[in-house]
Design a protein around this nucleic acid. Structure first.
Lengths: 153, 153
DNA sequence: ATGATATCCGACGAATTCACTCGGATATCG
DNA sequence: CGATATCCGAGTGAATTCGTCGGATATCAT
């Protein structure tokens, strides 16, 4: 019962992109270095994020990835769905109406309600957080930050 | 992001034991037949349930397994912890204080709060349900059920 | 006592998934 | 042109999952 590294690394990747939000594209090589993650593996993860429309890429030198929306508007449920597929603690309780599989036991199956409740609990928690909630706050101790940074813009 | 068949089969096994609760031990062979599950595999799962003190076994002919407590008092969180180990969507957010592993990134890691919230959501959902909630209600349509069964005992 | 029924226990194995790596094609900036 | 990136498909070693199998032990019924 756990998320894979796809979810873990992907979320950390997205947090980094959130930090760079508004300052042009960030390269995977840079993020891989900052987070100490395998670059080639991130390359695979980011495909899902791009296909989900959460990030856009610009190719070539000085290229990279950036968020398509402000971090405050990106729900963690969206991120994890993109990375790990539909949220479903059991195949008979999937999030995705497309992949909904009614098991042959559906009639007499009383266990289903358990998985549905667990699923709803998970999606509820993920819906309640945005990427912005995971971005580490800028420490106001550094003098050069007092220039443009304001706590109440 | 899903539970394994260990969790699925184990819960179904426990539901069957809940149905037989009070009528002596139920054999794995019988349950495997009722639920259409591989008997030899159930044998492995039930070890965890026994070690967790949720069931007791009686060996020999007419033996089997039975719940150690009433279904109403058995939380689903207990069942799934016995079957799948500590509830932890990520290793840095485990349920079990023994296995608590503070990752080396703990200081600067802002993502941890996400997994903790997800974990708490899951455990909350599992804590809110007991085995009794998953036992299919007896249908009152059968005449011979009207004898001893009452909706308000 | 004997045989049928069960749990108990360890080992084994096939299939799948995980967590990557590698090589090269394509696009863009300076 | 050349450095820097994304893009894309394929491959791989290790681990996990999902079982199976064989036999030892314990108990009940006859």
């Amino acid at each position: 019962m756990s998320f894979s590294t796809k979810g873990e690394y992907g979320v950390r990747l997205m947090v980094q992109l959130a930090r760079h939000y508004g300052s042009g594209p960030a390269s995977l090589a840079g993020i891989a270095a900052e987070e100490d993650l395998p670059r080639a593996y991130l390359e695979q993860l980011v495909v899902n994020l791009r296909e989900a429309g959460l990030v856009v890429s610009t190719r070539g030198a000085r290229g990279g990835y950036e968020l398509t929306r402000a971090p405050e508007t990106i729900l963690m449920s969206e991120v994890l769905r993109a990375l790990e597929g539909p949220i479903a603690p059991m195949m008979c309780a999937t999030d995705d109406p497309e992949h909904a599989i009614t098991c042959d036991r559906s009639a007499r199956c009383t266990v289903n309600v358990l998985w549905v409740r667990v699923r709803d609990a998970i999606t509820g928690a993920l819906d309640s957080m945005t990427l912005a909630d995971l971005v580490p706050p800028r420490l106001p101790t550094s003098p050069d930050e007092l220039q443009g940074a304001t706590t109440n813009p």
